[in-house]
Deep mutational scan, measured.
Amino acid sequence: QLNAMAHQIQEMFPQVPYHLVLQDLQLTRSVEITTDNILEGRIQVP
Score class of each variant (00 low, 15 high):
Arg29Cys: 12
Met12Gln: 11
Thr28Gln: 02
Val16Cys: 08
Ile9Glu: 00
Pro14Phe: 03
Pro17His: 04
Val45Leu: 13
Leu25Trp: 01
Ile33Ser: 08
Ile33Arg: 13
Gly41Ile: 04
Val16Met: 11
Ile38Glu: 01
Ile33Val: 13
Val21Trp: 02
Ile33Leu: 12
Leu20Phe: 07
Asp24Phe: 05
Pro17Gly: 03
His19Ser: 09
Leu27Asn: 13
Ile38Ala: 02
Ile33Asp: 10
Met12Val: 08
Thr28Phe: 04
Gln44Ser: 11
Met12Tyr: 07
Ala6Asp: 01
Asp36Gly: 13
Arg42Gln: 05
Thr35Ser: 09
Ser30Leu: 02
Asp36His: 14
Asn37Asp: 01
Gln44Val: 13
Ser30Thr: 04
Leu39Cys: 08
Val16Leu: 11
Arg29Ser: 11
Ile38Ser: 00
Ser30Pro: 03
Ile33Glu: 11
Val31Lys: 09
Gln1Cys: 10
Met12His: 07
Gln26Ile: 15
Gln23Cys: 07
Leu27Arg: 11
Gln23His: 12
Glu11Tyr: 10
Pro46Glu: 12
Ser30Ala: 04
Ser30Trp: 01
Glu32Met: 09
Val16Gln: 01
Pro46Phe: 12
Thr35Ala: 11
Leu27Ile: 15
Ala6Ser: 04
Ser30His: 03
Asn37Ala: 03
Val16Ser: 03
Leu20His: 04
Gln8Cys: 10
Arg42Gly: 04
Ile38Thr: 00
Arg29Ala: 13
Val45Phe: 11
Val45Thr: 12
Asp24Cys: 06
Leu2Tyr: 09
Val21Ala: 06
Thr28Leu: 02
Glu11Val: 13
Ile38Gly: 01
Gln10Asn: 09
Thr35Trp: 07
Pro46Thr: 12
Tyr18Thr: 06
Asn3Ser: 14
Gln23Tyr: 07
Leu25Tyr: 02
Thr35Asn: 04
Phe13Lys: 00
Leu39Asp: 03
Asn3Trp: 14
Gln15Arg: 08
Val45Ala: 10
Pro17Asn: 06
Ser30Asn: 08
Gln10Pro: 00
Pro14Cys: 05
Leu22Val: 09
Gln10His: 15
Gln8Asn: 07
Gln15Trp: 14
Ala6His: 02
Ile33Lys: 14
Met5Gln: 06
Phe13Cys: 03
Thr35Tyr: 07
Gln23Trp: 11
Val21Ser: 01
Thr28Cys: 04
Leu22Gly: 00
Leu27Gly: 07
Glu11Pro: 02
Asn3Met: 15
Leu25Ser: 01
Ala4Leu: 12
Leu25Ala: 00
Leu39Trp: 06
Arg42Asn: 06
Tyr18Leu: 11
Gln10Lys: 13
Asp24Met: 06
Pro17Val: 06
Thr35Met: 14
Glu40Phe: 14
Met5Cys: 07
Leu27Gln: 12
Arg29Val: 09
Gln44Leu: 11
Ala4Pro: 05
Gly41Val: 03
His7Gln: 14
Asn3Glu: 15
Met12Pro: 01
Gln23Ser: 10
Pro46Leu: 10
Pro17Ser: 06
Thr28Tyr: 07
Asp24Arg: 00
Leu20Asp: 04
Phe13Gln: 01
His7Phe: 12
Leu20Lys: 05
Leu39Ser: 07
Gln1His: 13
Pro46Ile: 13
Gln15Ile: 07
Val45His: 10
Ala4Gln: 12
Arg42Thr: 06
Glu11Gly: 07
Asp36Thr: 15
Arg29Gln: 15
Gln44Gly: 13
Ile33Gln: 13
Val31Asn: 06
Phe13Pro: 00
Leu2Glu: 05
Ala4Cys: 09
Val31Arg: 06
Gly41Pro: 01
Thr35Lys: 12
Gln1Thr: 14
Glu40His: 13
Asn37Leu: 02
Val21Thr: 02
Asn3Thr: 13
Ile33Cys: 07
Pro17Ala: 07
Met5Pro: 01
Gln15Met: 12
Gln1Phe: 12
Gln15Val: 06
Glu32Leu: 10
Phe13Val: 01
Glu40Arg: 14
Ile38Lys: 01
Met5Arg: 04
His7Thr: 12
Thr34Val: 02
Asn37Gln: 01
Ile9Met: 06
Glu11Gln: 15
Thr34Gly: 00
Ser30Lys: 05
Thr35Asp: 01
Gln8Met: 13
Asp24Asn: 06
Gly41Cys: 09
Asp24Glu: 02
Ile38Phe: 05
Ala4Arg: 10
Arg42Lys: 08
Ile43Tyr: 04
His7Met: 14
Leu2Asp: 04
Arg42Tyr: 07
Glu40Gln: 14
Ala6Phe: 06
Ala6Trp: 06
Thr34Phe: 00
Ala4Asn: 09
Gln26Lys: 11
Ala6Glu: 02
Val16Trp: 07
His19Ile: 10
His7Leu: 14
Gln23Pro: 01
Arg29Thr: 09
Val45Ser: 10
Met12Asn: 08
His7Asp: 11
His19Phe: 12
Gln15Gly: 11
Pro14Asp: 04
Gly41Thr: 02
Leu27Asp: 11
Val21Tyr: 03
Val45Glu: 10
Leu20Pro: 01
Gln26Val: 11
Thr34His: 00
Ala4Val: 12
